[in-house]
């Protein structure tokens, strides 16, 4: 059984149908990069998996739990950590409290244990010295690295990363991408929506290309950047446009 099963879902915002009879499975391994033009439903797909958007028809199962059942949402969200395009730290809390509040309140983890894990993760993302900083004392890249660490605090089975570098300048973007690569090497399962093609090429084990709410191509990394890219004119044009 796939870890995430997206079964024939449709999602519309008013008259705009973003995902139409959309189906795809994600196994509990590797890094899947989701590419495609803007407005094609990539972010909506991640938000539907996390239950932040309700689906109009079809179903999504995360570890066998349906997102249509409200009672499953807490477990689904714990299993699938999500990091957003905009950096969203809780502004009234310092970095450490941002990290420990949810494991303590949601998972009932002892505070000392949560603090230890937070320190380990901050070490991993290279920000242990920012333990007691507030969000306005951090750069955009640092905030995003902390948002990743915060999501990892819940020990998720998969991380959903929604264009997490698109609001950052190239230098900050590189800092964040390095962390993602490190997590991928550690075997963290990830679904990544991104426009960073070289990064996708380095990190992806599977590449999904979406257009108009449907899957145009679903292949391995190697296949995508060789055969598919050569054969599919639309994908070739998309990659070329992004490079320029």
């Amino acid at each position: 059984m796939a870890m995430i099963e997206v079964r024939n879902i449709t999602k519309a915002f008013g008259n705009l149908v973003v995902l139409k009879n959309f189906s795809v499975d994600f196994d509990q391994s590797g890094v899947t990069v989701i590419l495609g033009p803007s407005g094609t439903g990539k972010s909506t797909l991640l938000r539907c998996i996390n239950g932040l958007e309700t689906i109009d028809s079809g179903d999504i199962l995360v570890d066998g739990l349906s997102v249509r059942e409200k009672k499953n949402l807490k477990d689904i969200r714990i299993k699938c950590g999500m990091v957003f395009q905009q950096t969203i730290l809780f502004p009234h809390l310092d970095v450490l409290e941002n990290l420990v509040i949810s494991p303590i309140k949601i998972l009932g983890r002892p505070r000392n244990e949560a603090i230890e894990q937070a320190k380990e993760l901050l070490n991993k993302v290279g920000l242990i010295d920012k333990l007691h900083s507030k969000h306005n004392e951090l750069s955009g890249g640092e905030q995003q690295r902390i948002a990743i660490a915060r999501a990892m605090m819940m020990n998720p089975k998969a991380l959903l990363l929604d264009e997490i570098t698109s609001a950052l300048d190239p230098e900050m973007s590189t800092e964040v991408l390095k962390i993602i690569e490190k997590l991928a090497q550690d075997g963290v399962v990830m679904l990544i929506v991104t426009h960073e093609i070289p990064f996708a090429r380095r990190i992806a084990s599977r590449v999904l290309f979406l257009e108009y709410g449907s899957v145009v191509s679903d292949t391995s990394n190697e296949e995508f950047f060789t055969t598919v890219k050569e054969d599919n004119e639309r994908i070739a044009r998309f990659i070329q446009n992004i490079h320029h």
Binding site: N50, G51, L52, L73, K74, D75, R77, I78, G81, M82, F84, Q86, I88, F90, S102, K105, I106, L107, R150, A151, M154
Partner: peptide, 16 residues
């Protein structure tokens, strides 16, 4: 709204 969403995404229900 994003503050609410960030909380939900971490597993908090509406009350929490």
């Amino acid at each position: 709204k994003l503050q609410w969403e960030a909380g939900f995404a971490l597993g908090h229900n509406r009350y929490s």
